[in-house]
Protein backbone atom coordinates (compact mmCIF):
# COMPACT_ATOMS: atom_id res chain seq x y z
CA UNK A 1 0.00 0.00 0.00
CA UNK A 2 1.53 3.28 -1.14
CA UNK A 3 1.01 5.97 1.44
CA UNK A 4 1.86 9.62 0.92
CA UNK A 5 2.99 11.07 4.21
CA UNK A 6 1.74 14.60 4.73
CA UNK A 7 3.77 16.32 7.43
CA UNK A 8 2.30 19.69 8.45
CA UNK A 9 4.79 22.55 8.33
CA UNK A 10 5.09 23.08 12.09
CA UNK A 11 5.68 19.33 12.64
CA UNK A 12 8.36 19.38 9.96
CA UNK A 13 10.06 22.34 11.60
CA UNK A 14 9.42 21.90 15.32
CA UNK A 15 8.28 18.33 16.00
CA UNK A 16 10.13 16.09 13.50
CA UNK A 17 10.04 13.28 16.09
CA UNK A 18 6.27 12.98 15.54
CA UNK A 19 6.71 12.49 11.81
CA UNK A 20 9.55 10.02 12.40
CA UNK A 21 7.32 8.00 14.72
CA UNK A 22 4.56 8.07 12.11
CA UNK A 23 6.90 6.74 9.40
CA UNK A 24 8.24 3.98 11.64
CA UNK A 25 4.78 2.96 12.81
CA UNK A 26 3.32 2.81 9.31
CA UNK A 27 6.31 0.94 7.95
CA UNK A 28 6.00 -1.63 10.70
CA UNK A 29 2.40 -2.09 9.57
CA UNK A 30 3.69 -2.88 6.08
CA UNK A 31 2.92 0.42 4.39
CA UNK A 32 5.21 1.86 1.77
CA UNK A 33 5.62 5.38 3.13
CA UNK A 34 6.73 8.16 0.83
CA UNK A 35 7.34 11.71 1.91
CA UNK A 36 7.02 14.01 -1.10
CA UNK A 37 9.91 16.37 -0.59
CA UNK A 38 8.36 19.48 -2.06
CA UNK A 39 5.36 19.65 0.30
CA UNK A 40 4.98 22.75 2.47
CA UNK A 41 1.69 23.50 4.23
CA UNK A 42 -2.03 22.77 3.95
CA UNK A 43 -2.95 26.45 3.78
CA UNK A 44 -5.07 26.42 6.92
CA UNK A 45 -3.36 29.35 8.70
CA UNK A 46 -4.27 31.64 5.82
CA UNK A 47 -7.75 30.28 5.27
CA UNK A 48 -8.73 30.40 8.93
CA UNK A 49 -7.53 34.00 9.04
CA UNK A 50 -9.91 34.87 6.25
CA UNK A 51 -7.41 34.61 3.42
CA UNK A 52 -8.50 31.38 1.74
CA UNK A 53 -7.97 33.31 -1.49
CA UNK A 54 -4.24 33.49 -0.75
CA UNK A 55 -3.93 29.71 -0.51
CA UNK A 56 -3.95 29.08 -4.25
CA UNK A 57 -0.21 28.60 -4.68
CA UNK A 58 -0.12 26.49 -1.56
CA UNK A 59 -3.00 24.32 -2.78
CA UNK A 60 -1.41 23.88 -6.19
CA UNK A 61 1.80 22.73 -4.55
CA UNK A 62 -0.13 20.33 -2.31
CA UNK A 63 -1.93 18.76 -5.25
CA UNK A 64 1.32 18.39 -7.21
CA UNK A 65 2.90 16.57 -4.30
CA UNK A 66 0.07 14.26 -3.33
CA UNK A 67 -1.94 13.31 -6.39
CA UNK A 68 -0.21 9.96 -6.98
CA UNK A 69 -1.02 8.06 -3.80
CA UNK A 70 -3.61 5.49 -2.75
CA UNK A 71 -3.81 7.28 0.57
CA UNK A 72 -2.49 10.47 2.07
CA UNK A 73 -1.88 10.14 5.82
CA UNK A 74 -0.99 12.77 8.36
CA UNK A 75 -0.46 12.90 12.14
CA UNK A 76 -2.73 15.96 12.38
CA UNK A 77 -6.52 15.96 12.48
CA UNK A 78 -6.68 19.69 11.97
CA UNK A 79 -4.64 19.82 8.78
CA UNK A 80 -6.40 16.75 7.39
CA UNK A 81 -9.77 18.35 8.01
CA UNK A 82 -8.67 21.48 6.23
CA UNK A 83 -7.57 19.50 3.18
CA UNK A 84 -10.78 17.45 3.24
CA UNK A 85 -13.00 20.51 3.40
CA UNK A 86 -11.14 23.17 1.49
CA UNK A 87 -8.57 21.79 -0.97
CA UNK A 88 -9.38 23.11 -4.43
CA UNK A 89 -7.24 23.41 -7.51
CA UNK A 90 -7.45 23.88 -11.26
CA UNK A 91 -6.77 20.17 -11.41
CA UNK A 92 -10.16 19.38 -9.89
CA UNK A 93 -9.98 15.60 -10.21
CA UNK A 94 -6.65 15.41 -8.45
CA UNK A 95 -7.87 17.70 -5.64
CA UNK A 96 -11.02 15.64 -5.23
CA UNK A 97 -9.04 12.40 -5.16
CA UNK A 98 -6.87 13.77 -2.38
CA UNK A 99 -9.85 15.06 -0.40
CA UNK A 100 -11.41 11.61 -0.53
CA UNK A 101 -8.24 9.74 0.36
CA UNK A 102 -6.66 11.89 3.03
CA UNK A 103 -6.71 10.36 6.52
CA UNK A 104 -5.72 11.38 9.98
CA UNK A 105 -3.36 8.74 11.39
CA UNK A 106 -5.70 7.06 13.92
CA UNK A 107 -8.58 6.75 11.46
CA UNK A 108 -6.18 5.36 8.87
CA UNK A 109 -4.89 2.76 11.33
CA UNK A 110 -8.37 1.58 12.29
CA UNK A 111 -10.53 2.18 9.22
CA UNK A 112 -8.09 1.34 6.44
CA UNK A 113 -5.41 -0.86 7.98
CA UNK A 114 -7.93 -2.43 10.39
CA UNK A 115 -5.33 -2.63 13.13
CA UNK A 116 -6.48 -4.85 15.99
CA UNK A 117 -3.36 -5.16 18.06
CA UNK A 118 -0.06 -3.39 18.46
CA UNK A 119 3.20 -4.45 20.06
CA UNK A 120 3.44 -1.08 21.79
CA UNK A 121 4.42 -0.62 25.40
CA UNK A 122 4.24 2.69 27.23
CA UNK A 123 4.32 2.32 31.02
CA UNK A 124 3.00 5.75 31.90
CA UNK A 125 -0.07 7.61 33.05
CA UNK A 126 -1.36 9.46 30.01
CA UNK A 127 -4.06 12.12 29.74
CA UNK A 128 -5.97 12.18 26.48
CA UNK A 129 -6.66 15.53 24.85
CA UNK A 130 -9.29 15.41 22.12
CA UNK A 131 -8.44 17.76 19.25
CA UNK A 132 -11.61 19.48 18.06
CA UNK A 133 -10.99 19.24 14.33
CA UNK A 134 -10.25 15.52 14.50
CA UNK A 135 -13.31 15.03 16.67
CA UNK A 136 -16.05 17.33 15.43
CA UNK A 137 -14.67 17.58 11.92
CA UNK A 138 -13.35 14.09 11.13
CA UNK A 139 -15.39 12.20 13.74
CA UNK A 140 -12.47 10.24 15.16
CA UNK A 141 -14.52 10.02 18.34
CA UNK A 142 -18.06 10.70 19.52
CA UNK A 143 -19.04 14.13 20.80
CA UNK A 144 -20.45 15.05 24.19
CA UNK A 145 -23.06 17.36 22.63
CA UNK A 146 -24.74 14.71 20.48
CA UNK A 147 -27.12 11.96 21.53
CA UNK A 148 -25.28 9.04 19.97
CA UNK A 149 -23.33 5.92 20.95
CA UNK A 150 -19.89 6.68 22.34
CA UNK A 151 -16.74 5.61 20.50
CA UNK A 152 -13.16 6.79 20.20
CA UNK A 153 -10.54 5.75 17.68
CA UNK A 154 -7.60 7.25 19.59
CA UNK A 155 -8.73 5.59 22.83
CA UNK A 156 -9.23 2.28 21.06
CA UNK A 157 -5.64 2.42 19.82
CA UNK A 158 -4.28 3.54 23.18
CA UNK A 159 -6.07 0.65 24.84
CA UNK A 160 -3.89 -1.69 22.73
CA UNK A 161 -0.75 -0.26 24.33
CA UNK A 162 0.64 -2.34 27.19
CA UNK A 163 1.05 -0.77 30.61
CA UNK A 164 -0.50 2.52 29.59
CA UNK A 165 -2.86 4.09 32.10
CA UNK A 166 -5.34 6.27 30.25
CA UNK A 167 -6.93 9.27 31.97
CA UNK A 168 -9.69 11.52 30.68
CA UNK A 169 -10.30 14.98 32.10
CA UNK A 170 -13.81 15.77 33.32
CA UNK A 171 -14.54 18.02 30.35
CA UNK A 172 -13.07 15.46 28.03
CA UNK A 173 -13.83 17.24 24.75
CA UNK A 174 -13.38 20.91 25.56
CA UNK A 175 -11.20 22.91 23.19
CA UNK A 176 -7.64 23.73 24.37
CA UNK A 177 -7.75 27.23 22.89
CA UNK A 178 -5.06 26.93 20.23
CA UNK A 179 -7.21 27.77 17.22
CA UNK A 180 -4.38 28.71 14.84
CA UNK A 181 -3.91 32.47 14.69
CA UNK A 182 -6.51 32.70 17.46
CA UNK A 183 -3.68 31.73 19.81
CA UNK A 184 -1.96 35.01 19.00
CA UNK A 185 -4.77 37.44 18.20
CA UNK A 186 -6.91 36.32 21.15
CA UNK A 187 -3.99 35.57 23.43
CA UNK A 188 -5.75 36.08 26.77
CA UNK A 189 -8.64 33.69 26.14
CA UNK A 190 -6.44 31.23 24.27
CA UNK A 191 -4.04 30.87 27.19
CA UNK A 192 -6.85 30.70 29.72
CA UNK A 193 -8.44 27.85 27.80
CA UNK A 194 -5.13 26.03 27.71
CA UNK A 195 -4.51 26.54 31.41
CA UNK A 196 -7.93 25.12 32.22
CA UNK A 197 -7.27 21.97 30.19
CA UNK A 198 -3.92 21.55 31.92
CA UNK A 199 -5.47 22.01 35.35
CA UNK A 200 -7.76 19.05 34.80
CA UNK A 201 -4.96 16.83 33.52
CA UNK A 202 -2.84 17.89 36.47
CA UNK A 203 -5.63 16.89 38.84
CA UNK A 204 -5.46 13.45 37.21
CA UNK A 205 -1.72 13.38 37.98
CA UNK A 206 -0.76 12.42 34.46
CA UNK A 207 2.85 12.22 33.24
CA UNK A 208 1.96 12.92 29.63
CA UNK A 209 -0.79 14.63 27.67
CA UNK A 210 -1.36 13.06 24.29
CA UNK A 211 -3.46 14.02 21.31
CA UNK A 212 -3.98 13.38 17.63
CA UNK A 213 -3.00 16.99 17.01
CA UNK A 214 0.43 18.46 17.56
CA UNK A 215 -0.92 22.00 17.27
CA UNK A 216 -2.95 21.60 20.47
CA UNK A 217 0.09 20.00 22.12
CA UNK A 218 2.42 22.81 21.03
CA UNK A 219 0.10 25.31 22.70
CA UNK A 220 -0.25 23.23 25.87
CA UNK A 221 3.48 22.59 25.97
CA UNK A 222 4.17 26.32 25.76
CA UNK A 223 2.07 26.85 28.89
CA UNK A 224 3.46 23.78 30.70
CA UNK A 225 7.05 24.85 30.12
CA UNK A 226 6.37 28.41 31.22
CA UNK A 227 4.91 26.99 34.43
CA UNK A 228 7.90 24.66 34.73
CA UNK A 229 5.53 21.71 34.93
CA UNK A 230 6.75 18.09 34.87
CA UNK A 231 3.95 17.08 32.54
CA UNK A 232 5.15 16.44 29.01
CA UNK A 233 3.27 16.36 25.75
CA UNK A 234 3.52 13.48 23.34
CA UNK A 235 1.76 12.78 20.07
CA UNK A 236 -0.25 9.56 19.85
CA UNK A 237 2.04 8.30 17.06
CA UNK A 238 4.98 8.42 19.45
CA UNK A 239 3.11 6.32 22.01
CA UNK A 240 1.89 3.80 19.46
CA UNK A 241 5.43 3.56 18.11
CA UNK A 242 6.95 2.97 21.55
CA UNK A 243 8.01 -0.62 22.15
Amino acid sequence: MKVGLFVPCYIDQFYPRVAVATVELLERLNCEVIFPLNQTCCGQPMANSGFAGLAKGCNKNFVENFSNFDYVVSPSGSCVLHIKEHLTDENEDAALHIRRHVFELTEFLLDVLKVEKLPSNFPHKVGVHVGCHGQRGLHVCSMSELVASPFSKPEKLLSMVKNLQMMLPERWDECCGFGGTFSVFEEAVSVKMGKDRIREHKENQVEYITSTDVSCLMHLEGILRRKKSDIRVIHIAEILNAI
Partner: peptide, 18 residues
Protein backbone atom coordinates in the same frame (compact mmCIF):
# COMPACT_ATOMS: atom_id res chain seq x y z
CA UNK B 1 3.39 36.44 27.02
CA UNK B 2 2.29 33.34 28.85
CA UNK B 3 3.78 30.53 26.76
CA UNK B 4 7.27 29.34 25.85
CA UNK B 5 8.17 29.05 22.19
CA UNK B 6 8.65 25.50 20.88
CA UNK B 7 12.25 24.33 21.11
CA UNK B 8 13.59 24.28 17.55
CA UNK B 9 15.26 20.97 16.72
CA UNK B 10 18.62 20.83 14.91
CA UNK B 11 17.11 19.26 11.87
CA UNK B 12 13.69 19.31 10.27
CA UNK B 13 11.84 16.11 9.47
CA UNK B 14 12.67 16.71 5.84
CA UNK B 15 16.38 16.59 6.59
CA UNK B 16 15.96 13.44 8.66
CA UNK B 17 14.01 11.81 5.86
CA UNK B 18 16.64 12.80 3.32
Amino acid sequence: KQREMPVPPRQSFRTWYF
